[in-house]
C-alpha cells in the first residue's frame, strides 16, 4: 500500500511533467479527450491534427513497449461487455460535451485554479462514485 503511494506520486509527476512540456514548448493544453476527439472527429485539421496524431502515437506505443518488456503489468477489466460499451459511450460523449476530462480539466485546469476545471472535476468525481454503485446495482461488475 505504501509503495502504491510512491508509484502514484511518481506517475503523477510524470503526467504533470508531460503536460508542462506540451504547454511550454508547444503552447498547448494536454487534454486526452480533446487530443483524441479533435484528431478523429474532424475538428482539428492540418498541422494541428498531425500534432495530435503524433501525441497519440507516443501515448499508445510507449506504454505498450513498457508492458511488453515486462517492466509493468497489464490489468484486467472490471466490467462486462455491456458495461464497457455503456461506459465508453458516456466517456466519449461526456468529455467532448464538457470539453475536457481528467487531464484537461483535472490536471491542467486545477493547476491554474480554472473555475471550469474545478467545477468539472467536482462533478465527475461525484458521478464517478455514483457510477461505481450503478455498475454494481446493474450487476455489470466482474
Amino acid at each position: 500500500m505504501e509503495w502504491d503511494w510512491v508509484r502514484g506520486l511518481l506517475g503523477g509527476l510524470m503526467i504533470g511533467g508531460a503536460a508542462a512540456l506540451y504547454l511550454l514548448v508547444n503552447g498547448r493544453i494536454m487534454g486526452a479527450s480533446g487530443i483524441f476527439g479533435g484528431a478523429l472527429d474532424g475538428s482539428a485539421q492540418g498541422a494541428e491534427r498531425r500534432e495530435r496524431l503524433v501525441f497519440l502515437a507516443g501515448l499508445i506505443l510507449f506504454p505498450a513497449i513498457i508492458v511488453w518488456l515486462g517492466v509493468a503489468e497489464a490489468s484486467k477489466p472490471v466490467t462486462t461487455t455491456a458495461g464497457l460499451i455503456a461506459a465508453g459511450l458516456l466517456v466519449g460523449l461526456g468529455t467532448r460535451m464538457a470539453n475536457g476530462c481528467t487531464s484537461g480539466h483535472g490536471v491542467c485546469g486545477i493547476s491554474r485554479l480554472a473555475l471550469r476545471g474545478l467545477v468539472a472535476t467536482a462533478v465527475y468525481l461525484v458521478f464517478g462514485v455514483l457510477g461505481v454503485l450503478i455498475a454494481r446495482a446493474l450487476e455489470w461488475s466482474l
Partner: peptide, 17 residues
Amino acid sequence: GSALFGLGWGIAGLCPG
C-alpha cells in the same frame, strides 16, 4: 458532460488517457 463522463468513469474505471 462532466456528469455523463463521471458515470462512465465509475462504471469501467477508465478515463480517456
